[in-house]
Amino acid sequence: MGQLIQQLINGLTLGAVYGLIALGYTMVYGIIGMINFAHGDIYMVSAIIAVTVLTLLGSLGIAAIPLSLLITLAVAIFFTAVYGWAVERVAYRPLRGSTRLAPLISAIGMSIFLQNMVQLTQGARVKPIAALLPGGFELFTQNGFTVHLAYTQILIVITTVLLLCVFSYLITRTSFGRQQRACEQDRTMTSLLGINVDRTISLTFVLGAALAAVAGVMVTVYYGVVDFSIGFVAGIKAFTAAVLGGVGSLPGAVLGGLIIGLIESFWGAYLSPAYSDLGTFGILILVLMFRPSGLLGRPEVEKV
C-alpha cells in the first residue's frame, strides 16, 4: 500500500514533467503541423543552463530558495527561448513550402547538433548539483515503509497545472491564440488578413521553448543531476505523451504526460526497471496504430 502510494506520487511528478515538455510539442505541432524533433534538446539546454545559474547563484552566496528559484527560472526561460527562436529560424522557416521530408531531416540535424554542441561546450560528464529544495512531508508509515512527498514534487505538479491553465487561456481566449489557431488552419489566408504569420510561428516556438525551460529547471531541481543526453529519451517520452493525449490538445498533453509518468513509475517498481522504457515505446506504437488522434484529440481528415 505504502509502496503503491509512493509510486503514485513519483509517477505523477515524473508525468508532470513529461506533460510540460509535451505541451511544447503540442503547441508547435498545432501551428506548423509538424513535430519539433529538437524540442527534447531544447529542454536539455534549459537544464544545463539551470545548472550553471544555480551554481553561479551558490557561489555568489544567494541562498534564499524562492529568490534563487525565480532567478534560475527567469534566466533559463530567457536563454532557452532564444534557442527555441533560433531553431525555428534556422531549421524550419527556410523550409516552409519545401518537401515533406526536408523539415523533418533538418530538425533531426538540429537535434543532433544541439546535443553535441552541449557535449562539446559543457563536457560529457554528469553534472551534479546540491539540492535546492530539500525535505518534504512524511505522509505515513506502514509496515516500516514511509511514504514521502517532497517539496519539489509539490512544486512540479502545481507548476504544471498552473502553466496548463495559463496556456489554455492563452490559446483559447487571447488575440495571439486566435492568430495561432488561424495559422494552423490556413496560413495563406491568415497572412492575407494582415496577420504576421512568421511572427506568430516564431512566438509559438518561443513559448514552447519556455515551457521546456520550466521543465528543464524543474528536473534539475528535482533530480539534482543532468547531462547532455537527457533530451533524447525525455523527448521521446514527452512526444508519446503528446500523442497519447491527442496532438494539438493542451489538456491532452498533460494527461498523456501523467499517464506515461505513472506507467513508467509502476512498470519500473513492479515489473522490471530495465525495461521501463519499453512500456513507453509500446504505448506509442499501440496508440498510433489504434487511436492516432489520441485520447482528447480530434480525428484528422485527410485533405484531398
Binding site: V90, A91, L95, A102, I105, S106, G109, I112, F113, N116
Partner: peptide, 10 residues
Amino acid sequence: FGAAMILIMV
C-alpha cells in the same frame, strides 16, 4: 553531421 544536415536541407 548535424549542421550539415540542416545546411543541406536549406
